[in-house]
Design a protein around this nucleic acid. Structure first.
Length: 418
RNA sequence: GUGCCUGUAGCUCAAUGGCAGAGUGCUUCACUGUGGAUGAAGAUGUUGAGGGUUCGACCCCCUCCAGGCACCCCA
């Protein structure tokens, strides 16, 4: 143990147990994506810095991206997010694609930040977008995908909710309060953080932006108004549609949801555990213009991203990750002794040819062989000793129930398929 | 990038500045054709790393590394 070389800070090793969990997660989000007809895509993990510079000013790129020079001296970025890549891919084939696009992706991303609970430097992210539609229906569909996923992994609306807001609604409300266009970005940022800051500190910061006490009061009232969405036709239509889709119980209006990224222009949303214990599980929204910054013609869209870290913490906390992700169908063929080894190997080969997954033991004490099979979590072990070979049978033992039966060799495959 | 907390056997944790331990897990055996139970025996540590103070450091001090928490940011 002493001189094992350390892994890179903020990265994780996926041992088979963890890998099985990750694969399970991928299956769940794949199902949710494909149920709605979304197609899988991916881009490179390496991009030029220019791609991200197009949406400059963001801390995400300037402070958090891994940037290094390649051997030719050109700056290379490990992708910190997928949206710019998506924009580039869409823009460069804009005239050949059939809109609206329904695309999803899952892959690794890197951000150089201080690792802590729910935050690593290398993480996996599910991205899903519908591009080319400006409709309420598109917004509702993405929320429905998210809700479907949450439901499929076993979460219920009491545990997790999708909190939704509308940036245009907030914009007009802030105007009503008399907040200037110059003040708005800072105010939106403060609204986004209201639950993180002590209330007196938050008040101070708002006043420091040049608002008076009356405006402060008005904003606080605004942020407590969960009925505010009735003022927005877009939100009314959205909630009506979510009702029809049968996912409304997973969605709630929340005026404090703003989202950090600047490119969101309409509906914004994030999924959170209702107990407030975890970071946001997923986040997304509607953007008016995906590809203009990378040289395409304006295209609206809506999408969200979900990291693997927080969702797994939430699922772990609620005990929703299946304990037995080991493939129980894998068969274990024991070996009685050196003399019968060839016959065991022959049996294993026949079973593999018939489509079974088979692990072949080596000739050592049967007790050790069974212990090994048990630790791997396997479901069935086959015993082929001199007696069985003599009688042309195989003993099939269920490793969970301890029951074992002797099966005629000719009926073995049929027996195992039951 | 900022502040605070933590780091001892594979894991969970003890040890007032005075011989580094327990539980669990692991290996072997009891069980000569069968795993989880039980019992017996056994192995395992540069106390995260490096330096300092001290007769003596797991313990006190400094630096670094890693993890956790809160900022920042965000999936």
């Amino acid at each position: 143990m002493k001189n094992v070389i350390k892994s890179v800070k903020g990265t994780r090793d996926f041992y088979p147990d963890e890998m099985a969990k990750r694969q399970w997660l991928v299956r769940k989000l794949t199902e949710a994506s494909e149920t709605f007809g979304y197609q899988m895509y991916d881009g490179p993990c390496l991009e030029t810095i220019d791609l991200y510079a197009a949406k400059s000013g963001e801390e995400l790129v300037k402070e958090q991206a891994f940037v290094f020079n390649d051997r030719g001296g050109d700056p290379i970025t490990l992708r910190p997010e997928l949206t710019p890549t998506l924009a580039r891919m869409v823009a460069s084939k804009q005239n050949q694609l059939t809109f609206p696009l329904r695309w999803w992706s899952f892959g690794p991303f890197w951000r150089y930040e201080r690792p802590q609970k729910g935050r690593t430097r290398e993480f996996f992210q599910w991205n899903i977008d519908q591009i080319g539609s400006d409709s309420v229906q598109a917004d509702a569909e993405l929320l429905a995908v998210a809700a479907t996923f949450l439901k499929n992994v076993g979460l219920n609306p009491d545990q997790v909710k999708l909190y939704v807001n509308d940036r245009q609604l907030m914009d007009s409300q802030l105007s009503k309060i008399g907040i200037s266009a110059e003040q708005k970005p800072a105010m939106l940022h403060l609204i986004d953080r209201i639950d993180k800051l002590p209330s007196d500190v938050w008040d101070e910061k708002v006043l420091a932006e040049g608002l008076d006490a009356e405006q402060l009061k008005a904003i606080r009232e605004l942020l407590e108004n969960r009925e505010l969405w009735h003022d927005s036709e877009h939100m009314r239509n959205l909630f009506a549609m979510l009702e029809v889709m049968g996912v409304a119980d997973f969605v709630a209006y929340e005026p404090k949801i703003i989202r950090g990224l600047d490119y969101y222009t309409g509906t914004v949303f994030e999924a959170q555990a209702t107990n407030g214990e975890f970071r946001a599980i997923l986040g997304g929204g509607h953007y008016a213009n995906l590809v203009a910054d990378v040289g395409g013609s304006p295209l609206p869209g809506v999408g969200f991203a979900m990291g693997d870290v927080v969702i797994m913490l939430v699922l772990e906390a609620y005990g929703l990750i299946p304990a037995d992700l080991v493939d129980p169908e894998t068969l274990f063929v024991t070996v009685f002794d050196q003399d019968t080894l060839a016959e065991s190997i022959r049996l294993a080969s026949q079973l593999r040819a018939a489509g079974f997954k088979v692990i072949q033991a080596e000739p050592e004490k049967l007790a050790k062989q069974f212990k090994y099979a048990d630790r791997l979590g396997l479901g069935k072990a086959l015993v082929l000793g001199p007696e069985e070979i003599e009688g042309n049978t195989v003993v099939v033992k269920d490793l969970h129930s301890i029951e074992q039966v002797s099966v005629n060799r000719s009926q073995l495959i049929e027996h195992l398929r039951q």
